[in-house]
Design a binder for these strands. Structure first.
Length: 198
DNA sequence: CATGGGATTGACT
DNA sequence: GTCAATCCCATGC
């Protein structure tokens, strides 16, 4: 079982505070294979990236501001922000309170609610529905209003349904950033067709 | 108060 | 391959 998994009455388990209150690189790797659920739609995480206040690519690098205060909040908080004026990007806040760190969820393999996703995304194939950080928030209907919400409520993450080979998780440099681009802090499932492409 | 940049995407040459 | 769209907010004057 994954660290921090707690059993819910009625079946299923949800990742709890202990899961997120660890070094952000561990959480980024650990989230691969986990399930994101929101209002009946769900998908398996196939790609993540880690961000930490100690390096300039992270929004929290500048310290606590109105924009970044959520990154320093309780582990297991959602941090959603608008990128390029258009897209909402979903992160899970990690490490203890007062440390600015989060895992960006970059791609999902759709599991449930695919028709609703296609309605929101324009009838694309399953492989294109959630294969990017801006795409998956649109597909699930996740907006900026969820920033600051505690993960585990309407928006929740579950541990993997089935065990999988940890060798399938590979690392690489993060995508799309201009600062500290070389840290290999991106994690994804090898050969999974739902991973983002450029 | 004005400016500039951005953890992206999709359309177009 | 290039490039515009479009919003939030940090920064600087």
């Amino acid at each position: 079982m994954s660290a921090g998994a707690a059993t819910l009455a009625g079946g299923g388990a949800v990742l709890g505070r202990d899961f997120y209150a660890r070094p952000v690189l561990e959480v980024a790797r650990g989230l691969i294979g986990c399930i994101v659920e929101y209002e009946g739609a769900s998908g398996k995480i196939v790609e993540t990236e880690a961000y930490h206040e100690s390096e300039p690519a992270c929004h929290a690098f500048v310290g606590v501001t109105k924009r970044t205060q959520t990154l320093f909040a309780e582990p297991g908080t959602a941090y959603v922000y608008r990128s390029y004026g258009i897209h909402a990007l979903l992160n899970a806040v990690c490490e203890p309170v007062g440390v600015g760190a989060a895992v960006l969820i970059r791609a999902l393999e759709p599991l449930a609610g695919i028709e609703a996703m296609q309605t929101r995304r324009g009838g694309l194939s399953a492989e294109q529905l959630c294969s990017g950080p801006g795409k998956l928030t649109q597909a699930l209907g996740i907006g900026l209003n969820l920033s600051g919400a505690k993960l585990g409520g309407t928006l929740r993450l579950r541990p993997p349904r089935n065990p999988y080979n940890p060798d399938l998780v590979v690392t690489g440099p993060r995508v799309g950033i201009t600062k500290a681009p070389h840290n290999p802090w991106r994690f994804y499932l090898r050969d999974n067709p739902h991973v983002s492409r450029r």
